[in-house]
């Protein structure tokens, strides 16, 4: 590990995982934390609940398709949902920089309220700290969440089997591309909106109708490449993804090509990857497509016996290569 923290440690990719395993897990490790899922499954008076937390730092704070408030609520709701829980309560901790406009804060709070209403969660506790100018970048928001674990379901990498199918509920990379575009002025005339939104309704719909779901995860920082590697890493199976099946908006592709970015590594905030038994895959796709916001859901690959522990991409022209986790920060190319 390096001697100081770099931005790459927060990229959600390889360095983040190293930091988590070699430092946090080393000291904090316990049965609920060790699986490093999006949320912890714990018991309270024999009731199973899922408990999660997420800190949100984003620049710009307002962007096409969302803002830090919507992101904070959606992120936590989605983390609960992919762990098989019905989101119930959320906390809201705000760290605000001196000089931050109250009008902007109100916009963020209204956005959180609206998102929470849509997600059927209550913001039940909170905390506010103000730091000196320069000690934070506008506003940072932490949200923790609690959800009721749905009875009788089991999710986890240990349930994944060769032959299972990989599904995504829509276009990949929209959030990452929207943020890159909103941060900088590119000479392109098209718009890209973030996909940021709560996706618990579709997840719960699937969980209530199908029993072949192996695992779900929202591919946020580090993109689907990183999440798929989290599924396959150290496991006795590999995951094969087909480039031609990946749903990617032309606009996102158009932004990525000249900058040298790969949509596989762009963040998503309203998407989940689902691994499901092959016999229920079509059913899952049908259910998803019938729900608003998921019309572009697609099967993108399958679980394969070889090579174990790896994610493989079959390219448009038929060659295959291994897809790693995001390493370092994503930086635009120069030429």
């Amino acid at each position: 590990m390096n001697h100081v923290i770099s931005l790459a440690h927060g990229s959600g990719g390889l360095q983040s995982h190293t930091l988590i395993r070699e430092l946090f897990l080393e000291y904090f490790g316990n049965a609920a934390l060790n699986p490093l899922s999006d949320g912890a499954l714990v018991k309270v008076n024999s009731e199973k609940i899922v408990f999660t937390t997420d800190s949100h730092v984003i620049k710009p704070l307002f962007y096409p398709g969302g803002d830090i408030g919507k992101l904070a609520v959606s992120g936590t709701v989605n983390d609960l949902a992919v762990c098989g829980a019905i989101p119930r309560w959320i906390s809201c901790g705000m760290i605000i920089e001196e000089g931050f406009p109250i009008a902007d804060l109100e916009k963020i709070v209204i956005s959180m309220k609206q998102t929470a209403e849509y997600a059927d969660v209550q913001i039940v506790t909170g905390d506010t700290k103000v730091v000196e100018k320069g000690a934070a970048d506008g506003i940072f928001i932490n949200t923790a969440g609690i959800g009721d674990r749905i009875e009788g379901i089991e999710l986890g990498v240990q349930r994944i089997l060769p032959g299972d199918i990989v599904i995504i509920n829509g276009f990949i990379g929209d959030h990452g591309a929207a943020i890159i575009k909103a941060r900088e002025e590119f000479p392109v005339s098209f718009q890209i909106s973030s996909d940021c939104r709560p996706i618990h309704k579709e997840i719960i719909a699937l969980l209530s109708k199908l029993d072949g779901i192996r695992i779900m995860r929202d591919p946020t920082r580090g993109g689907i490449a990183t999440t798929l590697n989290e599924f396959a890493g150290d496991q006795p199976f590999g995951i094969l993804i087909h480039e031609k099946l990946l749903p990617i908006r032309t606009e996102v592709q158009g932004l990525c090509e000249p900058l040298g970015f790969d949509p596989l590594y762009l963040a998503n905030e309203g998407k989940f990857l689902l691994i499901i038994s092959s016999k229920e895959a079509d059913n899952a796709l049908e259910i998803l497509k019938s729900l608003p916001g998921n019309q572009n859901a697609a099967t993108i690959g399958e679980v394969v016996p070889e090579p174990p522990g790896k994610v493989i991409l079959k390219t448009h022209i038929g060659s295959s290569r291994i897809i790693d986790m995001l390493s370092g920060e994503m930086l635009p190319r120069i030429c």
Partner: peptide, 14 residues
């Protein structure tokens, strides 16, 4: 889809 090149002219991107 279109974008603009450095001279501001619309070009085809994809």
């Amino acid at each position: 889809m279109t974008g603009k090149n450095s001279s501001g002219k619309e070009i085809s991107v994809l």
